[in-house]
């Protein structure tokens, strides 16, 4: 995936800030290439931003349909990833708003939403449980902090890239990340304490 990205000159991720997609010179983005290179990122980011398993197909599709319409708008931006994340946030918020109005389609608990007939060896089950914990901790953050935290700690983007993705100031990135880390750590500590009492 990374190789394909490089081949078509799509800047991607940390360190790519220097390459800019020029208005004329650089090859244009093509939907399939963007999809192949970034569907994993969009998918996992959707999950981490609180999209339930059963809705993630729709959200990911919506993101790439927006991408399809707006490929030209990408010009001059530094990173496909940050661009995609900005689109994702809007799709997610739109999605959530629609479901809330429809009478609050509560996300299924992970255990129910999980793929039903996958056989899970014990170790895998343990990791699944940990993943659910991570998602639960993320959901404990508000939307702004969660976005910064996900990009920084799970995607390892740089602060300027996060500022670009979210359209916020660098200082705001730092202050939100600091607050998000604090809340995340506290919630994790509470969880571990509860576990220890059991």
């Amino acid at each position: 995936m990374g190789a394909a990205t490089a081949a078509v000159g799509l800047p991607d991720g940390p360190g790519s800030g220097a390459h800019r997609v020029g208005a004329a010179a650089a090859p244009r983005l093509r939907l399939e290439e963007v999809y192949d290179a970034h569907v994993d990122f969009v998918w996992r980011s959707a999950r981490r931003m609180g999209v339930p398993q059963e809705a993630v197909d729709d959200v990911v599709q919506e993101v790439f349909l927006v991408v399809h319409r707006r490929l030209d708008d990408f010009e001059g931006r530094s990173s496909v990833k940050t661009w995609l994340f900005g689109i994702l946030l809007r799709v997610v918020s739109d999605h959530r708003r629609r479901h809330r109005r429809k009478g609050g389609l509560a996300p299924l608990p992970e255990a129910l939403a999980a793929e039903p007939d996958r056989s899970c060896p014990a170790e895998q089950l343990e990791r699944r449980t940990q993943l659910e914990l991570l998602h639960a901790l993320l959901m404990g953050l508000d939307d702004d902090k969660r976005a910064v935290f996900v990009l920084a700690e799970l995607e390892q983007l740089t602060a300027p890239e996060i500022a670009d993705a979210l359209g916020i100031k660098l200082n705001t990135v730092y202050s939100r990340l600091r607050a998000a880390r604090k809340e995340f750590e506290e919630a994790l500590a509470r969880h571990r304490a509860r576990e220890a009492r059991r």
Partner: peptide, 9 residues
């Protein structure tokens, strides 16, 4: 780090 490769497609 333990689980972040688990929630992709």
């Amino acid at each position: 780090d333990d689980v972040r490769d688990l929630d992709g497609p």
